[in-house]
Write a protein that binds this DNA or RNA. Structure first.
Lengths: 234, 234
DNA sequence: AATCGATTCAAACGAGCGTTTGAATCCGTC
DNA sequence: GACGGATTCAAACGCTCGTTTGAATCGATT
């Protein structure tokens, strides 16, 4: 008899280890449908394994979920390492690199988006796997960003302020990942391809941030005042 | 026999109309657990109604879901109308008002957060109810923001640029709503209450945006250059 | 070739789900 | 007070889910 009807999903599925195959299929399924809606039957079918394999290898569905989140997270870390900067790299360049790689990681087409989608679910509605994800993955990245911002502002700002700057940057990128469908509804049809690619967004976010910090020219020089103070023209 | 064991949830539940009660309970349940995990039995128990009431009034679970999303959306529109500005109000003031009311709507404690949470689910993983939500609720608000930004920049920027500015502002606020739990993990414990209240965030986002546009002082005046320039230490 | 633990399998179990049913109850109308 | 439609109810139906079971199969070791 044939070993199994495989070749159900992508090419990476003929991994020798069935445990690995199930983890992959589970990640995809959980990412696409969510924890409740995903069924172990569908996962096992996609992995070319028997229904009982989940319980044999992972105990139960919940542990499979946690393992698949970790697995996707580790795969992502391997795929997109943080950029290394030569000493003397301008801080503005570092910021552009950081934002660009973050957006690539979130939206980039060179890797399947389901891994990020799975992690996104965790961030939006934290379960058990979330804290681990934050400590291992998010916080170190956030720390790098804070370092760049601190350098960029000449260490003139208190930590709390730098953190808020960092969150402002992440928020701008995050919107495209989390609510990309809605963004696509809000801007004219042809504009997405021209002005909302990862590259274009990275340029915009970097320029926006540099201008706010005072390390680049502002977007406009309107004659309209602030709330109470007045601005000094060039 | 007693009419029913009510008083299960909040005070607004003794609405005379059972249909209304079910809609309210369904909104809360769907917001908290998601569509799949929420059960009509729990919803009906919370609403003080019989299980069959859902099918009697709404046909099936999916139609109940769509109705509850619409219901939450309409209630929100009634609760938080867009601020009106007297003629001559400075654009910077309008921006602050807009951001503040958006954050209040998203995070504010004066109204139950489950309505926004329910709508958030729709934005993140659009279903049938999403397009309607965008057209009726999101797009008009976005239009107001674009108007303020256009005024703020003296109509000097093309529409595509203004839209990206608008998305940058929304993204900064959106992060706190969608990933608030993670934000709380990333900043020191005591800092949330001091620097990440709706008021404080609104001030920060407004200042950040005004600085980027050139309508306020930048956050720092570092000697650090842009990408091509070089930085000079303090 | 026999052995034995590891793995795979088809089949079934029990629970919980959304939904249906048909009778009971309510309530305005005549 | 009898009628009749609207509403409520307890009970059950059919289905799918996660999980379990016990036998069949595999593969290295003796």
């Amino acid at each position: 008899m044939p070993s199994q009807t495989r070749s159900r999903t992508s090419a990476a599925d003929d991994s020798r280890d069935p445990r690995e195959r199930i983890l992959l299929a589970a990640g995809r399924e959980f990412a696409e449908r969510g924890y409740e809606a995903a069924t172990v039957r569908d996962i096992c079918t996609a992995a070319g394994a028997n229904v009982a394999a989940v319980n044999y290898y992972f105990g139960d569905k919940q542990r499979l979920y946690i393992e698949s989140v970790k697995h996707a997270h580790e795969a992502r870390l391997r795929q997109v390492p943080q950029p290394e900067w030569a000493p003397g790299t301008p801080a503005a360049q570092k910021l552009r690199d950081f934002v660009g790689s973050m957006l690539d990681r979130m939206l980039g087409g060179d890797q399947p988006p389901w891994q990020v989608r799975l992690m996104m679910r965790e961030l939006l509605q934290p379960t058990e796997a979330c804290r681990e994800l934050v400590e291992d993955y998010i916080r170190p990245h956030f720390g790098i960003l804070l370092g760049v911002l601190d350098e960029l502002t000449g260490s003139a700002l208190p930590g709390s302020e730098v953190r808020r700057l960092g969150l402002s940057i992440i928020g701008q990128c995050f919107l495209y990942r989390a609510a990309g469908d809605v963004v696509a509804m809000l801007v004219p049809a042809g504009e997405i391809d021209a002005y909302h690619t990862p590259q274009a967004i990275a340029d915009h976010v970097t320029r926006f941030t540099l201008a706010a910090i005072g390390a680049a020219e502002p977007f406009a020089r309107p004659g309209l005042g602030t709330v109470s103070a007045l601005e000094s023209p060039r």
